[in-house]
């Protein structure tokens, strides 16, 4: 799966789709493939304030558990409730149906510290 050009990436394999002072967050195709069959996603609550690179949840696959870090700071305005019944969406469509949460950014400048698609691909290839 090609890494979408319009997103920004963290070294921890999360992506952010930034739109003004809002952003959608998820994990990358590389991350979902490394984890294998994802069976459960534990997300923060709506209204929670989260800090860039802080641990905000957990992604469970059949035999692994991985912390979920936020690439950006802000207030959680929505979480993807559909993942409760269909965690496989993260495997199927990591950049679409498999999105995890929406943020109202507290510091949109942080976006600059994230990687471009090209930079991220380089990292993932290592």
């Amino acid at each position: 799966m090609a890494t979408p050009q319009d997103l920004r990436y963290s070294k921890e394999h999360e992506w952010a789709r930034v739109n003004g002072d809002g952003a959608v967050i998820g994990i990358t195709d590389y991350a979902q493939r490394s984890l294998g069959d994802i069976v459960y996603v534990e997300l923060p609550k709506v209204g929670e304030q989260i800090k860039q690179f802080g641990s905000i949840g957990v992604v469970e696959s059949v035999k692994a558990v991985s912390d979920l870090f936020t690439p950006l700071s802000g207030e959680v305005v929505e979480v993807n409730g559909a993942l409760d019944g269909d965690p496989a969406a993260v495997n199927r469509d990591p950049y679409g149906d498999g999105w995890m949460l929406k943020l109202k950014l507290s510091n949109p400048d942080e976006t600059k510290s994230l990687l471009s698609a090209e930079e991220y691909d380089k990292l993932a290839a290592e």
């Binding site: 069959d37 069976v39 459960y40 469970e60 059949v62 035999k63 965690p87 496989a88």
Partner: peptide, 10 residues
Amino acid sequence: GRVDEARAAR
């Protein structure tokens, strides 16, 4: 045969 563990957990 091989058991579907992902289904069991999901």
